[in-house]
Design a protein around this nucleic acid. Structure first.
Lengths: 220, 220
DNA sequence: TCATATTCGTGAAAAATATCACGTTATTCT
DNA sequence: AGAATAACGTGATATTTTTCACGAATATGA
């Protein structure tokens, strides 16, 4: 294990970091839905289908401590995770592509829980430009530079068809975008210093199919 | 390393399996867009931001061999991956929730590339029932049992608001659904034998925010 | 044809991650 | 208050995954 503490910022194992996101989501939900104060590692583990040991080990990288027989104090734990993920620091994002997917994103209400805020949605279809999506008016691509500058946007969600994705990504990078949140299935070719997060949903489906097939095999 | 070969079915390391999905997506794209026959591990690695050694190691679990100085023969490689993922065996899926997200899924054309097929979309809003989404008419939830039986549906995509997700999931499981493809942010509580694939997009955004913050730190 | 330059294939080593085991601590019950 | 019990914290161990290093194979060009 090779952890570094640099300028007070704890570094987590990558795998732990991934699970911290899950804990954050779970705890955020519990806080909204239930009026409970404490949660056991066992309960978290069951909800996320992992082991309690894993949960406790992950939390050992945090400051928050649990109490034997009682569990972790949810407000404290969630507070630390919020801090860690910077949910208080707002990051502005733009959406390119106002199809169903782009509209779904534009209407999503959960961004504020993770410190994000949609500031505009774009499309190049003259029919769509000017229409409203929730609180946003669909803007033409030529407005991209202005909006990116005005709102200091670093993150852009790409919701255009596969054929157009690379072109749009290049455009965005040209305008100074630092991270591409890619909802198209196209595997983008971009400079190394540009962050790419692919949300290609078909991967999840392949996983499901494989598990179903595996299960069918075992049962026979 | 502890691999098993059981009834002719090779078991892969889990991490390798995840990357095989990426190779499959990349090669599928290349076959459609370009007219090339061979690809180097180096090229694959660059596109996916991993190392060529990793690619070659992963492929070492497959039958397909590459040729030094030439690379891997794309049709053979893709053929083996298609076989592995069962893209020829069609799995029927239903969509519950005809909001923007459900509609986006219903209109997605890439399912056939991975051996899946949407057969119906459902909603409980009387306003929406009967409307068309692409080629599908939105059906009421009471039709669920009939459709599930008729099309032998094992996979259901949940595209309803967070508040309704658990209830819908329970309903689906009651009707015999085996795998839940969860597009809501709700962390579902379901029997262990039900496969759950969460597509909660906010996790990806947390990752982006973290990388941006990390980068800003390094640069200072 | 032979030398050279690439690129593949894959054991071996290193690194990362998960599991185990058990001491510690907080609560509950008598 | 003291004993019993349940759950946390974490070093040690086991497993998984990645990286390294180098021999083998293939194309290219003199």
């Amino acid at each position: 294990m090779k952890l570094e503490e640099r300028k007070g910022i704890l570094k987590f194992p990558k795998a732990t970091f991934e699970r911290l996101k899950l804990y954050h989501a779970l705890l955020t939900q519990i806080r909204l839905e239930e009026k409970r104060e404490y949660i056991l590692s066992e309960e978290i583990a069951e909800a996320l289908r992992i082991t309690p040991e894993q949960v406790r080990k992950d939390f050992s990288f945090l400051e928050t401590n649990g109490k034997p027989k009682v569990g972790y104090y949810i407000p404290e734990l969630l507070g630390e995770l919020d801090e860690l993920f910077g949910t208080k620091e707002r990051e502005n994002i733009i959406i390119v592509g106002a199809g169903h997917l782009g509209k779904a994103l534009a209407n999503y209400k959960g961004f504020k829980d993770i410190g994000a805020q949609v500031v505009a949605i774009f499309d190049n279809d003259p029919e769509k430009i000017g229409q409203m999506v929730g609180e946003f008016m669909i803007l033409p691509l030529k407005d991209l530079p202005r909006v990116i500058r005005r709102f200091k946007v670093k993150i852009a969600a790409i919701c255009v068809p596969e054929k157009a994705a690379q072109e749009v990504a290049d455009l965005l990078v040209g305008y100074g975008i630092k991270a591409i949140w890619n909802f198209s299935t196209k595997i983008l070719d971009l400079p190394d210093d540009i962050i790419i997060q692919n949300e290609d949903i078909t991967r999840g489906l392949l996983g499901i199919k494989h598990m179903l097939a595996e299960r069918a095999n075992i049962e026979r």
